[in-house]
Design a protein around this nucleic acid. Structure first.
Lengths: 222, 222
DNA sequence: ACAAAAGTGTTCCAAATACACCCATGA
DNA sequence: TCATGGGTGTATTTGGAACACTTTTGT
């Protein structure tokens, strides 16, 4: 795109491979989980790794990310919030077989849409208790979580982890799970009303021997 | 790197080109400037563009960025602060000739090290008054500036635009130039002492008919 | 003596934090 | 009636913003 060598030159030298890898996050059973694939080949045989895919010539990179999610994670990729994290291309030996540049995205998935088949190579593993990972994928997952934390109070990103209707306690728990820290209930509710417009659905959820909770839906970030 | 197709497959399909483009910024004559190259070919003949380079197989991507800077900008690239901004790979028609993915870096250059030869294809143009740019490079420059602004008060990034010894007024002007806004002198100095450790060099700079200013050097960010 | 930038503290306001009790329900 | 989570307001602290005068030098 910019001024550089004449593009016809590009056919003349050997080019690195380019792939998209995705840090898929969701909340299952009150835990933050990341979608990983158990490797069945070397290097890192038996370790877990982020799902990924090589970028095809005719494919935009977000398309590549979505196709990777659908084919590896067996999830319908529309309705997944996707954002670019970082591009890794400095360690020439990451993939020992071919020099590969990796564009990493993170994606937030509502628990409702995940396919909970057991026994697949694709598994949801706890972020705060990761299994042994291939390559530097543990660091990548950590930086994805940090990035999300930074955006939590400035954007409506959290609602990508919640059903369309939720109680304020569920909302607070989602924040706490992502932050891995507890929050004060009253201050939290005050802040929610400051940063978001939430619609009271006039419905309630009754579960357990206690007062029913009001159900809200997300309208917009102020 | 991650689980994806067998890497041997990668030789089987046509791959996009991959390049690094660099938003080089410096302060010259009290103005924020970006290093651009005037295109002498289509598309965008006569427009300005970011310097860039295709990534070679054996080159890390920061190496690619540094080589692009040295060869296009005629600047010694060591001592330039470089950080990755974003990777653009969704618009399949950015470069009309070949599908190219562009990894964009931004770099901060001390004015002292730039080569001020006139008449070169490489020129320093004012960020707040850009000439007509090729592709979407105007947007890219804006987002680089935004990114730097976000980091200004949390990191020591600003010192990459200043000589090793500087007065507090120079420091404030650098902030103001990057922010494109003015700051209160007393609050500014208070904050500098909160976020940085600055060393008083015990030297002063006398220039003009007024009290000489103390010279400081940057030690670290608190 | 005056012009010009260097240097220095206090007051005010807004935002974040800490904190405790009543409510509605099922068992 | 008791156990459980739902729901609400005020006082305190902290950090950011506004603001004006004295100092040191050269001319």
């Amino acid at each position: 795109m910019a001024i550089r060598e004449d593009p016809s030159d590009i056919w003349e030298f050997k080019r690195p491979g380019i792939a998209v890898d995705v840090v898929l996050l969701t909340i299952i059973d009150g835990e933050l989980k990341v979608g990983l694939i158990k490797r069945e080949e070397d290097p890192y045989h038996g370790k877990h790794a982020l799902p990924g895919r090589f970028v095809r010539y005719e494919e935009s990179i977000t398309d590549t990310a979505r196709i990777a999610i659908e084919s590896k994670g067996n999830i319908k990729a529309n309705g997944i919030y996707l954002e670019q994290l970082y591009t890794f291309g400095d360690n020439l030996d990451r993939d020992t077989r071919i020099r590969t540049i990796s564009i990493v995205y993170y994606g937030l998935v509502k628990a409702e849409v995940i396919d909970r088949q057991k026994e697949s190579k694709f598994r949801w593993e706890p972020v705060y208790g990761l299994p042994p990972l291939a390559f530097d994928h543990a660091d990548i997952i950590k930086s994805a979580v940090e990035r999300i934390r930074e955006k939590l109070f400035h954007t409506g990103i959290i609602f990508n982890l919640l059903p369309n209707e939720f109680t304020l306690s569920e909302l607070q728990h989602a924040f706490e799970i992502v932050l891995n820290d507890s929050l004060d209930k009253r201050n939290f509710r005050k802040k929610m009303n400051e940063i978001y417009v939430l619609k009271d659905t006039r419905k309630t959820r009754m579960e357990g021997a206690h007062r029913p909770a009001a159900l809200y839906s997300y309208v917009k970030t102020r």
